[in-house]
Nucleic acid binder design. Structure first.
Lengths: 218, 218
DNA sequence: TGTACATCAGTGAACGCGCGTTCACTGATGTAC
DNA sequence: TGTACATCAGTGAACGCGCGTTCACTGATGTAC
């Protein structure tokens, strides 16, 4: 009690306002897209003057960075929680889809068209590795043919993206394939490409997942 | 000669300027992204006054529409040409990847994060169907297990996206899977997600394609 | 408990910028007789 | 071939807007004695 770690009222207030700003930012992104994110507009919606927000974020870029970080964090936590609940790869797939549908613009902010002048901070790749490691844990129990020799070697050499997870090349490949395939269906679904086609995205997603898991059950 | 179909000098001039405007538009998209597309900026680069462009396009939206249409057209032509040269599914995959790498921003304009306030015109779905039909032709020669009954029925009912191509459900599913899987790897590659991971996109793409075609050769 | 001081959240004015779009116009190009 | 006219590409000024960001400031909140 009363240690240096206790948040002062001012600190708590700052944290709360930062959160509120970010919430409005997500709303705005959901309405007009990430490239239209504007500090002034957020301030207006909060009933506050424009420059006030500069007390909380150094500028627009820092805000976007924070949003991206939060996005990765949220996905990592969601998948980890699912895994802790005993979800297998199929369960993780549905957790991923649920998370994406919950806020499509958040998904696109992380995995969609890159924001023009913007470059992601280093520590998001750490969270990314965490996500891949969770996938790899779920892949470990499954059998899968090893990829062709050169590609297997390539995967073994570069396992940094999975936090140096000690999985065999077959699992590394499966995790990678899982990610790209789920992303393929999901991103086209979220972009609305299936609505025009009158194809049910849920069925397509399920079929894709089925095919991925075929002959790979533990 | 001299029929109503012959282009007058003025018509030829108009067409040429329209083309030039679109070229500058693509350059600008490649630099700052689609959401930063600005008629004024294009005009400035062309050494012409802002309002001058309104002789050629009703506004920003019409220009974007035209760019999207041209993009779909270009992809459809590329794939069709490859198919006419005897390319199989694998050949089409590489044609697709080549086309995407040629101009990543063009790819994202069609298949990336949707442009905020914008809605695509109807006739692009016609070109989309043309693309899918080309894929389906290449799928026809391959064998593939039919998908589960309900999904097979769903695919049979809604084959409008393939221009009512008379292919069996197995082929419809394969084409759909081909599209989503290639898009999955490609869009992550173009967004730069593999560079941070130090994974070679070409090898990953090849492995994904290999897996797709496994046990489905004619 | 009360006073003096430091911290800091938020304001309002200002800077310079670029945007989409309209409008009345000038001047060159093409057409009709 | 030459003149009268119509078409239409491009100009420049203007409208209203919103953006990111800086700056000197006011006034409330918290701290030290």
């Amino acid at each position: 009690m009363g240690e240096s770690n206790a948040a002062t009222p001012r600190e708590r207030y700052r944290a709360q306002v930062r959160t509120e700003i970010k919430e409005h930012a997500w709303e705005q992104i959901a309405t007009a897209g990430a490239s239209a994110l504007s500090l002034n507009a957020i301030a207006k919606r909060m009933g506050v003057s424009g420059p006030a927000l500069y007390r909380y974020f150094a500028g627009r870029d820092e805000l976007i960075t924070e949003l991206i970080r939060d996005g990765y964090r949220s996905l990592a936590d969601t998948l980890r929680a699912a895994a802790a609940d005993g979800a297998d790869l199929s369960g993780l797939a549905h957790a991923l889809r649920g998370w994406a549908l919950e806020d499509p613009h958040r998904y696109f902010l992380l995995y969609g068209t890159p924001v023009p002048g913007y470059h992601a901070p280093d520590d998001t790749t750490a969270i990314s590795s965490e996500i891949m490691a969770t996938l790899l844990d779920a892949c470990a129990g499954l059998t899968q043919e090893a990829p062709a020799a050169p590609f297997a070697a390539h995967l073994e050499e570069h396992r940094g993206w999975a936090g140096d997870h000690p999985a065999p090349p077959a699992a590394l490949h499966l995790a990678m394939s899982f990610w790209t395939r789920m992303h393929g269906v999901l991103s086209l679904e979220l972009a609305g490409h299936f609505t025009g086609m009158r194809i049910d995205p849920a069925q397509l997603f399920a079929a894709e997942l089925d095919d991925l898991l075929r002959q790979r059950s533990a």
